[in-house]
Nucleic acid binder design. Sequence first.
DNA 1: ATTACTATACCAACTAGACGGTTTAGTAAT
DNA 2: ATTACTAAACCGTCTAGTTGGTATAGTAAT
Lengths: 186, 186
Amino acid sequence: MCAKKCAGRPSNRDVILDAAEQLVASEGAARLTFDALGQATSISKGGLLYHFASKDKLLEAMLERMVARNSDLKDAFMVEFEGDPNQELKSILLASLNSDAECAQLSSGLLAAAANNPELLAPMTAHVQQTFQSLEQFSRDPMLAKVLFFAVHGARLFEQLQLCEHCQGDRKAFADKLLAMIDQQN
Amino acid sequence: MCAKKCAGRPSNRDVILDAAEQLVASEGAARLTFDALGQATSISKGGLLYHFASKDKLLEAMLERMVARNSDLKDAFMVEFEGDPNQELKSILLASLNSDAECAQLSSGLLAAAANNPELLAPMTAHVQQTFQSLEQFSRDPMLAKVLFFAVHGARLFEQLQLCEHCQGDRKAFADKLLAMIDQQN
DNA sequence: ATTACTATACCAACTAGACGGTTTAGTAAT
DNA sequence: ATTACTAAACCGTCTAGTTGGTATAGTAAT
């Protein structure tokens, strides 16, 4: 619950979540097990279960962190695009597309939750709906915004599943194309 | 192996594959088990294993049928867009977006394979690469083509995961927007 | 400075059940 | 005769979750 201000040893919570994402990306959501996770982190199953009382809780935590990171990234882009008439749209898109190496497995949580217990996606659905409202409100061409939003997430999916290799190399060009399309809308 | 030309009773192969897709969509890839599939189809485990000797074979079959259906749909659209300068691109996009109710769970195979054994996606990767070459070759603006391609698959993903509700209702409008964007490219 | 206490962060061993897959023996439609 | 199964028992392995105990680090009274 408390990471810094409380007594006790420092927590491995984020280490575990990182390993979980990595595991899903490399081996598939079905092999995200406490045993495998224990091997990857050198933490015993008991230790893992101390942090996440059940597998569902672990999946929830993965989703939560994913949303939080995305939100932080969006805020950062909002600053970068200050003054741009399409600030909101651009920030949402680039946050989702994000290129930070540390967030490379951002959608592992999504896939893992979908595989193990789709009901866990409910809060995610709410978040998406909120984003869609934002797109609707702040975009001159909402349908274009929707298309670009889906494009970003399609690209992320293909990248995560390694269905295409050059997605990474072209990510900059891809992002530039998205921005150009936004600016060119009439 | 033979569905029509051989003697014996008619095969339930496709019935099984349909149920498998349905199961993945509603319960998640992790609950795609022979037991659950047997319950859903009223076919015994032995019967299922008669058709698909292992789970990997089942997943392979799901992917194969998915690709085959997509290919057939694309051919149908190629006829529909005969003479259109963007025939290829439009056909590829609409085939993937497809709206046939019977193919509603087209990407279940993808998610199930990704979850259980990512290595099974290798043929899929090849297929995607081929599609990308086609896009590169037949599109005036390949980057736009790529964006739209990802948009279609992003929309499919969100629909499959039920991350947004109105995707279905808006699918026609979404498709029209894609086509308009293709025609408007300069 | 020592002692006592508390909260956190684990570990090792175990259990009950689920899962993929096999086997066997038999049935039914064509 | 061939194909397409059913039914049911069975097996080894894996998995989530439990239990009961231990180690570490900070807190606070003495």
